[in-house]
Amino acid sequence: MSAGNGPLKTHLASETTSLCHCWRLSRADGVVFGFTDHDQSLVCDGTAFEPETGLTASEAKSSLGLSIDTVDVEGALSASQIREEDILSGLYDGARIETYLVNWRDPREFQKLRVAVIGKVTRRDGSFIAELESEAWALDQPSGRTVRRGCDAELGDAQCRVNLNDPRFSTGGTLRRVEDGGVIVVEGLSGFENGWFDNGTLTWTSGGHEGRKERVVSHGNFGGETRLALWREATLEGTDGDTFTVAAGCDKQFSTCKAKFNNALNFRGFPHLPGDDFAYDYVSEQGVFDGKALVK
Rank of each mutant, 00 (worst) to 15 (best):
I184Y: 07
R215W: 07
E214Y: 15
E237S: 13
T245A: 11
A229T: 14
E179Q: 15
G188R: 08
L236N: 05
E187N: 15
F197Y: 10
E179K: 15
G172Q: 13
F270R: 07
G181Q: 03
L175Q: 03
G200K: 03
A248F: 01
T243F: 00
A234W: 13
R177T: 09
H272N: 15
H272P: 08
K252P: 01
E233Y: 11
V217R: 14
G207F: 02
W231M: 15
T239S: 15
T256R: 13
G211A: 04
S206M: 13
E233V: 14
H219G: 02
S218A: 12
T235L: 14
E193L: 12
E210L: 11
E179R: 15
V216Y: 02
R268G: 05
K252M: 04
T174V: 14
A247T: 14
G249C: 04
A248K: 07
R232C: 04
T201Q: 12
G172L: 07
L202M: 11
E187I: 00
W231F: 10
H272A: 13
N262E: 13
T201I: 14
A248G: 11
S218V: 06
T203Y: 02
L202C: 03
N263T: 02
G191W: 12
N199G: 00
G224I: 09
N263H: 04
N194I: 01
T201D: 07
L230N: 06
F267Q: 12
A229H: 01
G172D: 08
K213C: 12
L273Q: 13
V183E: 11
T201E: 10
V183Y: 01
D240S: 14
E193I: 02
